[in-house]
Amino acid sequence: MSVFLRVKYLFAKSIFVFLSLVVASNSMATIDIYEFDDAKLSARFQQLTYTLRCPKCQNQNLADSNSTLSLDLKQIIYEKLKAGETDQQVLDFMKQRYGEFILFKPEMSRSNAFLWAGPVVFLVLFVVFFLRWYSNNREIEDE
């Protein structure tokens, strides 16, 4: 089975690659392990595997993990993307089976409001209080 891959980098380079590959290589059996024809799907796959956590590893995402469970889950993501599912559907699938733990990006839910809003609120309040302190206590001698 010979599969030919077109790398979408720059148009000129793509054409050059096409020609050079046809001419130079002896066999074209190299394939992506998770092979997509559409670069957008490939990008989504990468994104999803970075944002999902390996359930049994010590703090690794699916992309970087070689455990069998991670490989199985990546295969499932691959099949789902090819079948046309959305990112949210993939995330929901994982969450239903392994819980919120598997999401490296915490959901924007009410229970996580504190997490997402907290630091930003802190920053804003800090700056606001600081500016108020400054304008109230400002004592600069005239030069």
Binding site: P55, K56, T68, L69, D72, L73, I76, R97, Y98, G99
Partner: peptide, 13 residues
């Protein structure tokens, strides 16, 4: 054999 049922059950080991 392929572990898919385990995944349905949320098995991780």
């Amino acid at each position: 054999e392929n572990g898919r049922l385990g995944i349905e059950f949320g098995v991780y080991g």
